[in-house]
Nucleic acid binder design. Structure first.
Lengths: 354, 354
DNA sequence: TTGAAAGCGCTAACAG
DNA sequence: CTGTTAGCGCTTTCAA
């Protein structure tokens, strides 16, 4: 219908309503003092012309965008899916939009993403960093006083709050139940990104969620005097095929493990597939446990013993932390986010299978 | 360090470099013609002052934001998680950012989301609408010539391309295998939102993905002369408890169904839980099939027979369609997105269980 | 309550 | 290659 390409602007509405631009802006924006008469005239004019507010221009002018940037590693992982829902719902009801960026766990993409969000002048950031040791892009945010909350990972040396689930107690409990079942050779598989150039220079596993899971296990083993074979800890698995290879090596090597710990639900799937194709039954021949509680964990046979994390709560907590940092939410006591063990049926007594 | 709150602007950099603002903008923006000397001076100045480009201002000026809005119903559903990855990766490599909004399948939130994105002047939209019959917000986009691609749902009467997986052939195949196993009483459970006020006024099930799934099944049953009890088709299940209730009613009613079709993976979980707590075994007492192939489908026992959809490809296709609409990508033939049946083990012969 | 005018940070003619 | 001068659409003093 309309032949011109240009947007309908506040000026157009003002003209149509026979009021000044300033007054029109006040009416449309719901601020300042506007008389009933003018208000209705402006609203009618806006409606008639099909006016659509331009929040970019508004942000340029006010310096606030009312949106926050969220950077996650892997949006197809249900862990992040659920986290994002918690974050997103919480921020939306506080009046903020969420700009989500997915990095595929690539550090370079993450740097780009943070930069793009910064360019968009988001009012705050929630980032789940791929690497704990390479953070100049995050430091830049902190230095320029942009609100930043770290999610699911800590970055030592960076002055920003981080929301992580406390998993050590549950990990200890899990380990004790493995020990009680007679397990001494325990394998661990994760997809922690160790290929990245930064990793080689500065190995900081301790502050990753994976690291905390391992720590909980190792500490318990150690305190019980069980010697740990470090080759049974596989950190850098890349993709389904690689996970399966690691699992195969762990359960069929010289001194095979009798129990397998998977770092998350995605890994578990490949691991169970590999065990099945090797003809090994769970838990008769190999015990299995996971550091996540996917909804299907109880449906497989045997039902999976898991360390369950309050994922949605963690997302909500991160959003609340950020709101507080942005001065847009009540001060919230950081909630007690701790995981707990759910024993189902995938851990059984050790049985020699040779 | 810096005492002022104001951002470093192109003007500041220009002054520091001793060049005009226009020239500085060209150097920083990588457009126009700039001499080596000026370029390096400007870059150095920008670095020294900690200049960070403001893409909002740029967008206001140019009228393009280089970002697209994506609206999905339920980001924690792995179906959308995977879709979003396909969309996101494809758009990113074409130079566009993705602004993701999650609606929780609420129509009102969807309207708000589209509006917010429109305010941000995104260059295009990918929307998975909650309702097919209430679309003034989408029509407004089309009318003002904003590129829009519908995802996973069609909206009859709306002039916008939509990317949907063709599921009918696979549904027919599935139905035939049920018939071959002797099933005549088949139940169907979905979470299609029928509570929405708009739904009651104008029931448009045919163009939802759920509708197409049912259609494929019903058509086949019909052509084989099997009579269909419409009370066995449960559309509006809300939440896990409600799904379980529907399942219970279907399998324990007067004339119980012998086969259960779940509309997606999330529903399947609740359905299987309910069957288990009823003590019914699959497929001996009830056969089960799903219109999705979650990664754990092969791990449960019995392994699930599914209609598998090319989810990632669908996401990629939607992004490509949008790029084409925005004039930012090669013309792409709309790919053949069709689902296929994977027979595992959850369909068995009918056996009277009374 | 209203309006004029100056700004927000950046781009885009148009001369030189 | 470079600078000047207008914009982009909206907000925000400051007087009236």
């Amino acid at each position: 219908m309309s032949s011109t390409r240009r947007d309908v602007t506040i000026g157009d509405v003002a003209q149509h309503a026979g009021v000044s631009r300033a007054q029109t802006a006040r009416a449309l924006g719901g601020y300042g003092a506007v008389s009933e008469a003018v208000l209705s005239r402006v609203l009618a004019a806006a409606e008639a012309l099909g006016y659509r507010a331009n929040s970019l221009a508004k942000s340029v002018s006010t310096g606030r965008s009312l949106s926050v940037g969220v950077v996650v590693g892997d949006i197809e992982n249900p862990f992040f899916g659920l986290s994002v829902r918690g974050i997103s719902d919480t921020l939306r009801s506080a009046g903020f939009d969420v700009v989500l960026m997915n990095t595929g766990e690539s550090h370079d993409v993450e740097v780009e993403a943070v930069c793009a969000l910064d360019g968009k002048r988001v009012d705050g950031f929630i980032v789940a960093p791929a690497l704990a040791s390479a953070y100049p892009h995050l430091e830049a945010l902190v230095d320029s006083r942009r609100p930043l909350v770290l999610y699911d990972r800590e970055v030592p040396g960076l002055d920003a709050p981080s929301v992580v689930v406390d998993v050590e107690a549950a990990a200890e409990q899990l380990t004790r139940s493995l020990l009680a079942a007679g397990h001494r050779d325990i394998g661990f598989v994760s997809t922690l990104n160790t290929d990245d150039p930064h990793w080689r220079e500065n190995q900081q596993v301790a502050h990753t969620p994976v690291g905390r899971r391992i720590a909980g296990v190792l500490r318990t083993l150690c305190s019980e005097g069980v010697e740990v074979d470090l080759t049974n800890i596989r950190l850098g698995a890349r993709g389904a095929e690689d996970i399966r290879r690691h699992v195969r090596e762990l359960v069929t090597g010289e001194s095979p493990v009798t129990a397998l710990l998977a770092s998350d639900a995605v890994i578990t799937i490949s691991a169970l597939e590999e065990l099945r194709s090797l003809g090994l039954t769970v838990p008769a021949e190999v015990s299995v446990a996971v550091f996540d509680d996917p909804p299907w964990a109880g449906l497989i046979s045997p039902p999976l013993t898991v360390v369950s994390q309050p994922v949605l709560d963690a997302g909500v907590a991160a959003a609340q932390q950020l709101l507080e940092l942005m001065g847009a939410g009540a001060t919230v006591a950081s909630p007690n986010l701790s995981a707990h063990l759910i024993s189902r049926g995938s851990i059984g007594p050790v049985r020699d299978r040779r």
